[in-house]
């Protein structure tokens, strides 16, 4: 290569890197994290599973109501909410989004790649922020697609016999946005949890415990004062408030959204502290 030899023979200094500005640094880290995220098969598989599982469950549940509508009792019919019914998968899909978030980072800890990542970008909080920003954006898009698609499929099945809703129905848009926000926040929850526990197994088990087993245990306890001040503020119940029509004793949607974000912020602080204190 003539260009190279010329530079060497002139004895000029090596090519300087681009000037380091905060913006460039941030963009470089974002690009690097984006490439990693896009190339992970486990992430694509989890995201696809979340989408298929949600749509399938909405389809099955709504088809069930459609075909059995005439045999249902009058009380069941009166209590029927088409939006809530088609979004019932939101009791389970957060697990997959949480696992998705956790895998973004536990995979790197599992393989030891995290050392390479931190060697390339020693500003660990910056790496975490880049992961969070990308996961938040990708997660929100994925959540909107999942919730919207499942909703449309579900309502399409209900149409005809049972009451059904459209995007313009009262409360429908709010429920969809709430559900998407719930999924996005659980993905971030999973990410920060993954940084704290550093293991896929522990992160996934914790998510199952917090979002699935704990509610089963405590939701049906007697609704004393202690219950009313604690149980509605669990992540799973805050999420329920976000997409479900108002339920007695639970928090309303807007404060629930802020409270769930508060959980995520709390966990993010824990993750940042863990990154600072512990060796990679």
């Amino acid at each position: 290569m003539p260009g190279t030899s010329k530079r060497i023979s002139n004895g000029s200094p090596p090519v300087p890197g681009p000037p380091v500005t905060a913006l460039r640094r941030g963009r470089a880290v974002l690009t690097s994290e984006w490439i990693k995220m896009g190339s992970l098969r486990s992430l694509r598989a989890t995201a696809l599973t979340g989408l298929v599982f949600s749509v399938l469950l909405a389809f099955l549940v709504c088809t069930g109501f459609h075909s059995r509508w005439h045999s249902l009792g009058p009380e069941t019919r009166a209590a029927f909410r088409p939006v809530d019914t088609s979004l019932g998968f939101l009791q389970l899909t957060p697990l997959l989004f949480g696992a998705l978030g956790a895998l973004v980072v536990t995979g790197e800890y599992g393989t030891g790649q995290i050392r390479g990542t931190f060697a390339a970008t020693p500003q660990r909080p910056l790496v975490l922020a880049a992961k969070a920003v990308l996961l938040g954006a990708v997660g929100l898009a994925l959540a909107l697609i999942t919730v919207g698609f499942a909703f449309l499929v579900g309502q399409g099945q209900l149409a005809g016999t049972a009451p059904h809703a459209s995007l313009g129905s009262s409360g429908a848009a709010g429920a969809l946005l709430g559900g998407a926000l719930y999924l996005t926040l659980t993905a971030l929850f999973g990410l920060f949890l993954g940084v704290v526990v550093r293991s896929t197994a522990v992160a996934v088990s914790t998510l199952f415990g917090l979002f699935l087993v704990l509610p089963v245990l405590v939701d049906n306890l007697p609704k004393g004062a202690a219950w009313r001040h604690t149980v509605p503020w669990l992540p799973s119940n805050l999420g329920y408030s976000l997409w479900h029509s108002p339920a007695p004793l639970l928090v309303r949607a807007t404060p629930a959204g802020f409270a769930l974000a508060g959980w995520v912020v709390l966990l993010a602080a824990g993750a940042l502290a863990s990154l600072r204190v512990r060796d990679a």
């Binding site: 069930g64 109501f65 389970l92 699935l212 087993v213």
Partner: peptide, 16 residues
């Protein structure tokens, strides 16, 4: 956990 925990919740969503 899919079999032990997720499946029951999914089944309970089915009508009646």
């Amino acid at each position: 956990f899919g079999v032990l925990l997720v499946l029951p919740v999914a089944v309970q969503l089915l009508p009646g």
